[in-house]
Write a protein that binds this DNA or RNA. Structure first.
Length: 677
DNA sequence: GATCCTCGAGTTCG
DNA sequence: CTCGAGGATC
């Protein structure tokens, strides 16, 4: 007997999966990601495996796909274009190998290929005597759509075989090849940058963009998209015999088909799985998006003999990486107040796993962002982790709208203090205009004591909030007059913690001028400007006495920033703050450097470096100190002017951008070696 | 005046 | 990391 709750859930899964199939195949507007679909299908398959009586002929697990849209003529594939079973993680991949080993003794000693699972559109290409005659989408796996004209616009697709006329290769009389059409990530980003600059709506991801382009009725649109292609399977061949997958890949390459470069042949399944795991980290270096790798039994005869289960061949499995893009519900939009008074909206999300962690919140940057993307409260939204860390809302899934979504309204009052919020002319940001807004004060103090500025150990966001709420602080100078007795009145403070904090505050009184300057939070003055100002003026007195002209003379300070500095010193509340600091003897000075030092002799003078990833022995600040010590500059972003990019473990997009711009990459050792020259 | 570059600010989770 | 905005440069 099947438990009632399971049969209910299975019926529900049937309904859900059929609906998603419809959205995906017919409307071409999926409302969940492929990964989420896989998860649901898997759940169903698990129930069906446990209770075989649940398997019905109309179960979504028994179907290869869905309907075929009416837009294009239909093409019957010469053989079924199968999908693959999934393995999430190394353990499941080993389970798969063990399963097929039990079915056939030859598996024990066979070889395997590993190929990337490209996130694009499957296409089926027909050649007769070397001539490209027809191309189709995958459709439902049996019948696809004729997109021959669109495919012809893809420049990497061979129109005549062999591509190199003098290639030493036998051309089959008939050949049907399976490949993946996609938009390279870099091309996609460049396209979106252009669209964004023109104020137009941007595309959600490369896959959807490629799909739209390839299935556009106007081939001129297809041609304008830099689509490309990689091929990896022979569906049908006449006139030539191939005996293994590896031989197939080599043969396709010889004919002139583009073949995935990372494809590798392994003698042992353990090595194949290890290779998949290894690429989980490295895959972002590829020009295309992947959500996994495909492990295939190499010899064709064994591949065939292992047969098919449902809709998947037993002899291959997709090794899937954790999803990086998921959809979830936007429950609400909250508003934060920053230390400058900027109101920043953030998404309150139905918790969802992305790239291995559960995300509940994501910033929405500013109010324009919400309206440009047309994000509404209650929407299904697509989430990714930018640079594999920070959650980022890509945009709404418009196809999933019910009509109950609510358009967000820009607040006219500060959500914390209730005072009027204003948007200065020509700016995107909306500010809370109340300078004594408690939210602002909390953030100002947090910044004052944080690691990049005065670096007071044991002083963080929570304490800043506590102290302001208790009324113990009314400006940043009050931090220095905090006593052990005051701290002991706070929740979570006992003798030892209070003593340590008072000592840490004492140490911070003698931080160098540049640190104090950036701690003050003068508009336009951060890390870099503070260092430059400190170097040129040497004391707060000298800086205060400086005219706007004096300030503009510094490279990197223009008229606007100079005015911000001058205005800051004029403000009465800041004058009061300065008086307090002076009285407390928090008044660092340093030697004035008139012009840039004569560092022509230094190895790195005139060079700009960018750091990314984690270096083996040095921290980021060690590396920065090393570069600066030798006369180089360290910048945060890669540009044409960058001399070198120093790459550590698990680098971000900066390494990719450097490669794109043809900038030389260095590791820690290579950076040190530059000095030896 | 346009374009590229750099800086500053806000930001998520464990 | 991403975004906005100021500064440098042609």
């Amino acid at each position: 007997m099947v438990p009632i709750h399971i049969s209910t859930r299975v019926a529900e899964l049937h309904k859900i999966l059929h609906a998603h199939n419809y959205h995906y195949y017919v409307e071409q507007a999926p409302i969940i990601t492929d990964h989420e679909f896989d998860q649901l299908l898997r759940e169903l398959q698990e129930y069906e495996a446990a209770y075989p009586s649940l398997v019905t002929s109309d179960s979504p697990s028994q179907r290869v796909g869905g309907e075929v849209s009416e837009k294009f003529p239909k093409v019957a594939h010469p053989g079924p274009i199968l999908s693959l079973g999934n393995a999430f993680g190394a353990e499941e991949a080993h389970d798969w190998a063990a399963r097929i080993a039990r079915l056939d003794d030859r598996v024990e000693s066979t070889s395997f290929t590993v190929e990337p699972k490209i996130d694009g559109l499957t296409v089926v290409l027909h050649y007769e005597n070397g001539l490209f005659v027809q191309g189709a989408t995958r459709g439902n796996g049996e019948i696809g759509e004729d997109i021959t004209a669109n495919l012809r616009t893809i420049r990497s697709m061979p129109l005549r075989l062999p591509v190199a006329p003098d290639a030493d290769v036998v051309v089959p009389t008939r050949l049907v090849v399976r490949g993946e059409a996609f938009l390279p990530v870099a091309e996609f980003e460049a396209m979106n940058e252009k669209l964004a600059a023109a104020g137009e709506k941007t595309y959600v991801n490369p896959r959807n963009t490629a799909s739209g382009a390839l299935r556009n009725l106007d081939t001129k649109v297809t041609a304008s998209r830099p689509l490309t292609l990689l091929c990896y399977q022979v569906v049908l061949i006449e006139g030539v015999t191939l005996t293994s997958q590896w031989e197939t890949l080599e043969y396709l390459k010889a004919l002139g088909f583009p073949v995935p470069a990372v494809s590798t042949l392994f003698d042992k399944i353990d090595d194949a799985v290890a290779f998949c795991v290894e690429w989980g980290e490295k895959r972002h270096a590829l020009t295309y998006e992947t959500d996994g790798m495909v492990i295939k039994v190499n010899p064709n005869d064994l591949y065939e003999d292992l047969g098919i289960t449902g809709k998947d061949p037993r002899a291959a499995v997709a090794f899937k990486y954790p999803a990086e893009e998921v959809t979830t519900t936007l429950n609400d939009i909250g508003v934060n107040v920053g230390r400058t008074g900027v109101l920043t909206p953030y998404a309150i999300l139905e918790p969802v796993a992305v790239g291995g962690v559960v995300v509940k919140q994501a910033t929405l940057h500013n109010f324009d962002f919400i309206f440009e993307k047309d994000i509404r409260i209650g929407d299904r939204v697509l989430i990714k982790r930018a640079g594999e860390v920070i959650p980022y809302v890509i945009g709404p899934v418009e196809a999933a709208r019910s009509g109950a979504e609510v358009v967000f309204e820009i607040p006219t009052l500060c959500p914390v203090c209730g005072e009027l919020a204003e948007q200065p002319e020509g700016e995107v940001a909306v500010y809370c205009m109340n300078t004594s807004c408690p939210a602002q004060l909390k953030r100002v103090i947090e910044h004052f004591v944080s690691r990049g500025t005065l670096d007071i150990d044991g002083f963080g966001e929570k304490l800043a909030v506590q102290l302001v709420d208790e009324g113990l602080l009314s400006d940043v100078a009050d931090v220095f007059t905090l006593t052990k007795e005051q701290l002991l009145t706070l929740d979570g403070f006992a003798e030892k913690k209070a003593v340590n904090l008072v000592a840490a505050i004492d140490v911070a009184k003698t931080r160098p001028l540049d640190r104090l300057l950036s701690a003050l939070g003068i508009k336009g003055v951060g890390d870099v400007a503070a260092t430059d100002l400190a170097k040129r003026f040497g004391s707060l007195d000298a800086l205060q006495a400086a005219s706007v002209e004096d300030l503009v003379a510094i490279e990197g300070i223009g008229p606007i920033s100079a005015q911000f500095v001058a205005d800051w010193f004029v403000k009465p509340s800041n004058q009061k703050l300065l008086d307090k600091l002076r009285a407390l003897n928090v008044w660092p000075t340093q030697a004035v450097v008139e012009a840039s030092p004569d560092d022509e002799a230094l190895a790195f003078s005139g060079m700009t470096f960018v750091l990314t990833g984690t270096l083996p022995n040095w921290s980021r600040s060690d590396a920065k100190a090393f570069i600066e010590q030798h006369g180089g500059k360290v910048s945060g972003s890669v540009s044409k002017k960058t001399s070198y990019v120093v790459v550590g473990a698990s680098p971000g997009s900066k390494a990719a951008k450097a490669e794109q711009l043809g900038i030389q990459l260095l590791d820690e050792a290579a950076l040190q070696a530059l000095i030896a020259l």
